[in-house]
Amino acid sequence: MNATRTVRVYTSVGLVAAVVLAVVFVPLLFPVDEQAVDMAHKLQAPSLAHPFGTDDVGRDVLLRCVYGLRVSLLVGVVAALASTVIGTAVGAASAAAGGRGDRLVMRVVDVFSSVPHLLLGIFIVAMFRPGVWPVVVSVGLTHWLSTARIVRAEVLSLRSRPFVDAAISGGASRLRVAVRHLTPAVLPQAGLAAVLMVPHAIWHESALSFLGLGLPTHRASLGNMIQDARGTLLAGDWWPTLFPGLFLIVPTLAIAGLAGVWRERINPRRRSELML
């Protein structure tokens, strides 16, 4: 069991590292215009010159995948951070307020949760001109709900622990208990939620782009690429669809693997391994 976990850790860390290195360094090493059209080499099957082939206007799929992943990761990380910050703040404030304020906030969360994310996201991006930031705002504003719930539940359960009573009896103010005892206890959970949110946000970005509501269509993004390649897939040209799809799945699996390791680490049961 330990061996498989070690393999999982190294695989996940390796993949995440590879993804980050690729999106940082490939554009630096190959400063070509990934949007340049080259009709002479359109729809070429994977070869040494173009390992992932070219798309229907002759652009290199590998290069566009990397650029697309770069945009997707940027959107994913920023949106995940934003939603985690909002969710943690709302959840903690709701738990701290208690009573009527808490109930009101949670009902609002329930209402938002009852609307499908994607629908709400579409509604938000539709209010702006296509671009990266509307997508970030849209994903960030629709994904803090579950984090808020997790953080609120965690704070509520922590608040009634005897160690908080002990702190009160020791003269600690509400702020001090929140900062010194509750926040450090909630952070690992909130951090885990943020990490798990990154692939989710990437998929949302792709979905919005696929629907033509996300990034401008000429920008390389994984969603745009899959959308563009839909027509060619029917003609039997599989590579412009397959590779962006893989680029979507691999980081997702890698991040999920890392999050799993993290979850095990913050699980208090592991602490009692010694049973003394």
Partner: peptide, 27 residues
């Protein structure tokens, strides 16, 4: 106050030194 269960009455993130000093810091 001293509680029944030391496990739940102690913040798991503090060292014993910080645990004992906490009321002094808080005041």
């Amino acid at each position: 106050v001293v509680f029944q269960q030391p496990r739940t009455a102690a913040d798991p993130r503090l060292t014993l030194h910080a645990l004992i000093a906490e009321p002094l810091r808080a005041t």
